[in-house]
Write a protein that binds this DNA or RNA. Structure first.
Length: 355
DNA sequence: AAGTCCAACAACCGCGACGCT
DNA sequence: TAGCGTCGCGGTTGTTGGACT
């Protein structure tokens, strides 16, 4: 038996959307929510496939979509998350507030991939394709790759947990109401959108307001309320906390508490200024201050190796092991500093106005 | 001015995952 | 448990507009 068509193809319009169609879709979703995408076109009076309507809404019409050029920090985030997650655009989009996976994917394919290749970094493996780093490039690459692999496992586990949480929370949460849709900020204030903080929070599981417009992951209370994260720098905060409070932690998830508590050690105080960010990161490297490296210090304060080792679930029983771990972490950090520095230099050369 | 190339981005397509019956 | 419907994701294609010859 063949696959059933996603929708009745006959008589349905394809191609670019007209302003009238946009208006119809927007008005319908704002008033009724989308509910079933399959049934939506008929209800909204659109000669479109439900799938097309969903795409148009998630990638273009949603009120919380941030459009325009990607900032330097957004690009850094994409590069580093891509190194960790690969082509999992929806997962990457969860770390970039108000950007859609489609937009990120397009940006990667048209800009970032080429830039990395140009500076001698394989955009697939994120390894150096030439020995331009003095000495032990290959060693560093291998270590960074190993580190990434390790962290990718954690990230995969985390994403799976989030997906599970999303499914559970979906059963408790009704389809977003029009008011809920409008509650999302059109444009985050700079402090609220601080990328390094966002990603850090994301890793802490407290990224309710970082939900991707297109992600299926509903971060509403994705940390199960285990990690209250007071952020008062944006209108979305109260919404987030409110949403978090709605989540009822299931027994099944209580086992994850330790994991999140470990991350909570890295909880940072309110950060409103660049100065504070620099203080926290403790690194003057512009790229590094944004992310603290994808390697050993992945998205976290790399100075806390001890806690990091706990984060990654590694035993730190012996001093030798601890020392070795620190050295290894430092090498990873150095490697990623090098990579990011090269990309940064490239960006600076190409578009000085960005820096 | 016309043709060509290419970058950017919107949109489509096919597949897999998941929920429901 | 199997079959079916629905949805979301990622890869790919199509369209548009600007730069260049």
């Amino acid at each position: 038996m063949g696959r059933s068509p996603c929708c009745e193809k006959i008589g349905l319009k394809k191609g670019p959307w007209t302003p009238e169609e946009d208006e119809k879709l927007l008005a319908f979703v704002e008033e009724h929510g989308h509910g079933s995408w399959r049934a939506l076109p008929a209800k909204a009076g659109l000669q479109r496939c439900g799938k097309s309507c969903r795409l148009r809404w998630t990638n273009y019409l949603r009120p919380d979509i941030k459009r325009g050029k990607f900032s330097l920090q957004e690009e850094q985030t994409i590069i580093q998350l891509h190194a960790l997650l690969g082509n999992r655009w929806s997962a990457i989009a969860t770390h970039l507030p108000n950007r859609t996976d489609n937009e990120i994917k397009n940006h990667w394919n048209t800009h970032l991939k080429k830039r990395l290749a140009k500076i001698g970094i394989d955009p697939v493996t994120h390894k150096s394709t030439c020995g331009t780093l003095t000495g032990t490039t290959n060693d560093r690459s291998a270590k960074a790759a190993a580190s990434l692999s390790h962290m990718a496992q954690w990230e995969n586990a985390r994403l799976e947990a989030e997906a599970r949480l999303a499914r559970e929370s979906k059963t408790r949460t009704a389809t977003p109401t029009p008011s809920a849709l409008h509650a999302q900020p059109m444009d985050l204030p700079a402090s609220a959108a601080s990328p390094w903080l966002d990603v850090l929070h994301a890793w802490q599981g407290a990224k309710i307001d970082l939900e991707s417009p297109t992600s299926t992951l509903t971060f509403t209370g994705s940390n199960g309320g285990m990690l209250p994260t007071p952020r008062t720098n944006g209108p979305e905060v109260s919404e987030s906390n409110s949403a978090m409070s709605h989540y009822q932690m299931s027994d099944e998830l209580e086992g994850e508490e330790t994991y999140w508590q470990i991350f909570s050690k890295h909880q940072v105080p309110e950060v409103d200024s660049k100065e504070s960010e620099d203080d926290f990161i403790g690194c003057e490297e512009p790229w590094f201050s944004g992310m603290a490296g994808v390697g050993a210090g992945m998205l976290l304060d790399v100075s806390n190796e001890h806690e990091l080792s706990e984060c990654w679930g590694e035993s730190s029983s012996g001093q030798t092991v601890e020392h070795s771990k620190q050295a290894s972490d430092k090498e990873d950090k150095d490697y990623w500093n090098w990579v990011l520095d090269r990309v940064n230099s490239e960006l600076t050369a190409q578009s000085p106005s960005l820096v």
